[in-house]
């Protein structure tokens, strides 16, 4: 065989093998993380988890119900506040501001916010909400989550509305439908699956957020639904329990981690299914 040809083939085989190894490497981590998570998390799964509050230090029974409720409350408020704002802002970018000089700036800033470190959002809310309110609160935590939701929803909303064919809008306008109704009744309906996907992805993103809650919502050992007080929540509870010396707390941390991961993966997969349903049509 020609030596040059052999060398080229050899190099090609080496690179192919390396790419294969890289893929195996990536998938292995996912498998390892999920395996240990299920292995350790399932060991602590019981009804107690959903019926009892987080235990005091050293106790050997207790659950996570206050943390689960707190997380759900803050996620719902965060998405409830952030999603409409993101939806409207995305609508402006896609529908009204296509040739606006403001839009590229907003789009650019939004993309920066989309990847800004979440701990910075925590600092922002600390300065803007916690200090004026003189105390950590569930409300501050929810607002921090809302700030993270907004750029995600803006981005997906704009992208999805851009996919709606203009002929639909033109047809509606030609009928004399006012602009706002063209958007609300035509564009939103045509892009509905995509818009829902965006909100679900945003929810998945904030469901496991920890850093911005560390000094906005803090945590609480007791059951509380008071929005002006600190509130227990899964991520911060896990954060506190992992670094504790108590075996039972660590066990609860694993179980909580499994719950969060399952919720986030379910939201992600749900979002993908809704998204692909639309493209399949």
């Amino acid at each position: 065989m020609n030596p040059i040809y052999a060398a080229r083939r050899g190099r090609d085989i080496v690179v192919r093998a390396l790419c294969f190894a890289a893929a195996a490497f990536g998938v292995t981590w996912l498998a390892l993380i999920l395996f240990t998570l299920f292995y350790n998390g399932l060991a602590g799964m019981s009804w107690q988890l959903f019926t009892q509050n987080t235990p005091p230090p050293g106790a050997s029974e207790g659950g996570l119900v206050n943390a689960i409720v707190g997380s759900v409350i803050m996620t719902v408020i965060g998405v409830g506040v952030g999603a409409p704002i993101g939806l409207f802002a995305g609508t402006y970018l896609a529908e009204y501001g296509r040739h606006d000089r403001l839009s590229p700036v907003i789009r650019f800033i939004n993309d920066i916010l989309l990847s800004a470190p979440s701990i910075i959002i925590g600092l922002f809310i600390y300065g803007a909400v916690v200090v004026p309110m003189r105390g950590f609160s569930a409300l501050a935590g929810s607002l921090a989550l809302a700030v993270i939701v907004i750029p995600v929803v803006v981005r997906t909303t704009e992208d999805m509305l851009m996919l709606v064919p203009n002929s639909l809008r033109e047809a509606a306008s030609a009928l004399g439908l006012p602009r706002s109704l063209v958007i609300k009744r035509i564009a939103y309906r045509a892009a509905r699956a995509g818009l829902i996907t965006g909100v679900l992805l945003a929810t998945a993103r904030v469901a496991g957020e920890t850093a911005p809650l560390l000094f906005t919502a803090l945590s609480n050992q007791f059951f509380s639904v008071d929005l002006t007080n600190t509130i227990a929540n899964l991520p911060v509870t896990i954060n506190n329990f992992v670094q504790s010396p108590y075996v039972y707390w660590k066990q609860l941390a694993w179980s909580g981690a499994l719950l969060i991961t399952l919720a986030v993966l379910a939201l992600n997969i749900g979002a993908r299914l809704i998204g692909s349903e639309r493209t399949a049509k």
């Binding site: 993380i33 998945a204 469901a207 496991g208 954060n239 969060i260 986030v264």
Partner: peptide, 9 residues
């Protein structure tokens, strides 16, 4: 999609 606290622990 896995939250970063899971990676941490």
């Amino acid at each position: 999609g896995i939250p970063s606290i899971i990676y941490g622990m």
